[in-house]
Design a protein around this nucleic acid. Structure first.
Lengths: 228, 228
DNA sequence: CTCTGGTCGATTGTCGACCATTTTCTGGGT
DNA sequence: ACCCAGAAAATGGTCGACAATCGACCAGAG
């Protein structure tokens, strides 16, 4: 087996560097969902001991990108459509609240940032730059949580973003189906957020989500690797 | 259903055991809020090495029960009123949804459990049994999340319960002020939940929370130990 | 052929040690 | 009483080695 993992940047502290390297490898598909991360192998590739590597894996587990099974190993999570639908169903409840809390900042100094993010999304879509569009897409929604000044809301989004990113990276039907539609939706979301119309925001958001939780099959969160 | 032999506890590795031990020690007040957790001392007490202990502390930090300060140590958090208010503000949005999702189970086989929990709370209050009342109180609200069949909602509550329990254990003005009022509120919550009236549930819940987020002073999450 | 039981290699879990970094204590000097 | 340098203690990070466990494979009995 040739070296799968290489240092992507220099000048990083060991555990954090390993963390970022593995995270990038997971998100760009180098390690597929369900794939196993073998400690000895990776440590040898990176030329480090298993201790900092295990710390990096722990961080990835906290973030929800990998699942560790005792005496079995660390596996990349497989985010199910069910789980994404569940996340969206909760976002539908809290994100309008986040938008409401950040309305003041959004109408003031942060207004350019919101518009810029929509613009970034637009450009990325025109050029079919999937990674960039995913990035702008998530940055857009994160904005409301960050600007809400609400610690609990911020931590909620932090727990969701990586899972959403992983899911979007694997399943980009959302983009290929109707690229323009997504941009329009976010323009509308930005507009109603600037108006401070919370109810309208909720309605636009509901339209933005692909489908409701009820439409999902009852496959109860397939979060375990396929070998179990 | 005819699995006669089942491992109730999943494979327990040392860090998990340490994690539960420390968690229990924190929640029952053995280690007071603001108290320090010394690695060497605990490791010697439990007869283990620092490696699994550090992993356990990391898990506690992730859960929000412990704060680690570089080169100073790990301290038990002091949950601020601000953070509880933030949690409640989000619960006000999602808990009615959880109640709605669990309405079916609640009207069916789980109905006795709901009524029993209210009864437990009632008895604990009459006897001024604070720990038992906190337990029944939290069990009541957990019920909606558990029965919702919604994994994300369940994990949300799991992330909140320990912090709420820690806060209630320290500051039980909520109970001493008007013991009977709290029981009545939960009887009403149970009633509207059984009726499936989501809006009424939200209103009762709002009345149940001591005060809104806006009434809080702007002390932005006092999560650091007192020595800082 | 199928099932049981044991062995073996691979992988993770745990340990003790070592050194670096930072904080805290201590004691002398002014 | 104040200040500062040095010592002592605690944590952070890393490593190599050993123990525990799992999955796969294989031999033998029915």
């Amino acid at each position: 087996m040739d070296h799968k993992f290489e240092w992507q940047e220099q000048r990083m502290t060991t555990p954090d560097g390993v963390y970022r390297t593995l995270r990038a490898a997971i998100l760009d598909g180098t390690v597929p969902p369900g794939g196993q991360l073998r400690e000895a192998h990776i440590a040898a590739d990176l030329g480090i001991s298993r201790s900092p590597l295990r710390e990096a894996l722990t961080k990835l587990e906290e973030e929800g990108l990998v699942v560790k099974i005792p005496y079995r190993g660390a596996f990349v999570v497989e985010v199910s459509a069910r789980e994404v639908a569940e996340i969206d169903s909760v976002r539908l409840l809290v994100e309008p609240y986040a938008a409401e809390l950040s309305a003041e900042a959004l109408r003031g100094p942060e207004r350019p940032q919101l518009l810029q993010t929509v613009e970034d999304l637009h450009r990325a879509m025109e050029q079919d730059d999937i990674p960039a569009s995913i990035d702008a897409h998530l940055r857009f929604h994160r904005l409301f949580y960050d600007l809400s000044g609400h610690g609990v809301l911020q931590s909620l989004w932090n727990g969701w973003e990586t899972k959403l990113r992983l899911h979007l990276s694997v399943d980009h039907r959302t983009y290929s189906e109707d690229p323009h539609q997504l941009v329009v939706e976010h323009e509308r979301l930005a507009a109603v957020a600037l108006e401070g119309d919370t109810d309208a925001f909720r309605q636009e958001l509901a339209a933005h989500f692909p489908m409701g939780l009820r439409a999902q099959t009852g496959d109860r969160g397939e979060r375990t690797p396929r070998h179990v």
